[in-house]
């Protein structure tokens, strides 16, 4: 081990540390503080008396919500990782993660260290972002798997069947038999056409671009009914009006997602969807509402699926400056509502 003086190392740490380190006595008088603390808790705003006591800077602990002094850390010998509000040199209230520990029982001196919470939050945010990205990649991969399977199982297989059938044509001498084979192939091809059309509509309906959101939704709800046996009560006053493509896409995708959630999780046989254009003092707005009277869920509970659906809905709506609100209660059903400012229509 290199011979370094521990005292000098500790001193260097004390002065250079990026966390605030303060030594206080049992009344909260500050005995020493490091440069970071001096920089953050500036004395210029306060008179000297205030400055020498920690209570002049501390705004209470943040156990649950409001700052609170009833269980002050000064009264304990040791208190680890708690939240505390401090007043900084600009008079701002900042949250810190603090540790408080008595180090000299004889003189009743304790060390008080503070780390800004925002740094910690940044780390958490980063971790969260990473997790989210992983999930999005996973969802993307699943979607590709689904499309690939649809193409392989449906399209490739059927095409192969037709191909085999057609190869037999040239060996079929009997006219009647040949006619039958041709008819069979025709049938297979028409099924295949149907199948491909279905895949393509599921991915993104052409009617959304060609005919607008109202027509696309109507087709989608018809499909929902055929696929899952769900009735959709669709009310709209859009009357074939058109809006900017990104707005129409957002409306379509959000309503689609909310309706899907209702189909998947509500257990209800019927969904109500309202889509209305309304004027407000700052222009035209589109209001939408997707409601079911099914199982509902506890707001804030762990999501049943990936949780990406709700995330995507919020992301989409904020991309067009709209607002989205979800209201649910177990046993009472779920209501998703929101609006999007559209500026102007497209004629």
């Amino acid at each position: 081990m290199k011979t370094h003086d521990l005292t000098s190392l500790l001193e260097a740490m004390f002065h250079q540390s990026k966390e605030m380190i303060l030594f206080v006595d049992r009344h909260g008088e500050i005995v020493y503080m490091n440069a970071e603390a001096e920089k953050t808790l500036d004395l210029s705003d306060y008179d000297r008396n205030q400055f020498i006591n920690i209570c002049g800077h501390c705004m209470g602990m943040a156990a649950s919500g409001d700052p609170d002094c009833t269980t002050c850390f000064l009264m304990s010998k040791e208190k680890l990782t708690f939240q505390v509000y401090m007043r900084t040199r600009y008079g701002k209230r900042v949250t810190y993660i603090a540790n408080f520990q008595q180090i000299d029982p004889e003189n009743n001196i304790s060390v008080f260290t503070l780390n800004p919470l925002s740094e910690l939050m940044k780390q958490q945010e980063f971790e969260h972002q990473k997790l989210l990205t992983q999930r999005i990649i996973q969802a993307q991969e699943n979607e590709r798997k689904r499309i690939s399977r649809d193409l392989h199982d449906g399209v490739t297989q059927e095409l192969l069947n037709v191909l085999l059938e057609m190869r037999l044509f040239k060996y079929t001498k009997d006219r009647e038999e040949l006619d039958e084979k041709i008819e069979d192939s025709e049938e297979m091809l028409s099924h295949l056409l149907d199948y491909i059309r279905n895949i393509s509509v599921e991915l993104r309906p052409a009617s959304l671009d060609d005919l607008g959101v109202e027509a696309a939704l109507k087709t989608h709800f018809k499909w929902l009914q055929k696929q899952y046996g769900i009735l959709v009560d669709f009310n709209t006053n859009l009357n074939k009006k058109r809006y900017r493509p990104e707005i129409e896409t957002v409306i379509y995708r959000i309503i689609q997602e909310a309706a899907f959630n209702a189909v998947k999780y509500s257990g209800s046989d019927e969904i109500m969807v309202n889509l209305k254009e309304a004027g407000s003092y700052n222009g035209i707005e589109i209001h939408f509402e997707i409601e079911d009277e099914g199982a509902g869920f506890l707001m804030g509970a762990e999501p049943k699926g990936s949780g990406l659906g709700l995330f995507g809905m919020h992301e989409r709506i904020s991309s067009v400056d709209g607002e989205l609100n979800i209201d649910s209660e177990p046993g009472r059903g779920t209501k998703v509502e929101g609006y999007i400012p559209v500026g102007e229509r497209i004629v």
């Binding site: 199982d153 008819e183 099924h191 149907d194 055929k226 696929q227 899952y228 046996g229």
Partner: peptide, 27 residues
């Protein structure tokens, strides 16, 4: 021949009506 879709004809023991509206497709 003809229709490429069909339906459930009987579902015994179901407590929902959804199957009556579902349209099934060959693939």
């Amino acid at each position: 021949r003809g229709n490429s879709t069909f339906k459930w004809k009987y579902v015994l023991g179901s407590d929902s009506q959804r199957w009556k509206r579902m349209e099934l497709r060959k693939g």
